[in-house]
Amino acid sequence: MKKERVSILEHELVPKHEIVGEEKVAELLDAYKIKKEQLTKIKLSDPVIKEIKAEVDDVVRITRRSRIAGKSLSYRLVIE
């Protein structure tokens, strides 16, 4: 039997992950007056990170559905 490969990004429990462009990252860091290292981290080995082909040092934006706020944003720095 041949296994069909389904992208985990399609799954309803996986929130939207997207790589943030360099300019946007600079804006973000400036807005919060933080360094990249002060973002929360996500491992390169994370299945979603593999799937969206992000690389170490990329920043990903995660958009979640939130029961409280409707939509919530968070940013993570990809690490090894």
């Binding site: 919060y32 933080i34 002060q38 939130s66 409280i68 919530s72």
Partner: peptide, 19 residues
């Protein structure tokens, strides 16, 4: 600025409680 941070200044949540 409404962010939740730990002692090193790492942002744990960008908006307290999301709202």
């Amino acid at each position: 600025d409404g962010t939740v941070r730990e002692t090193r200044g790492t942002v744990v949540q960008f908006k307290y409680g999301d709202d």
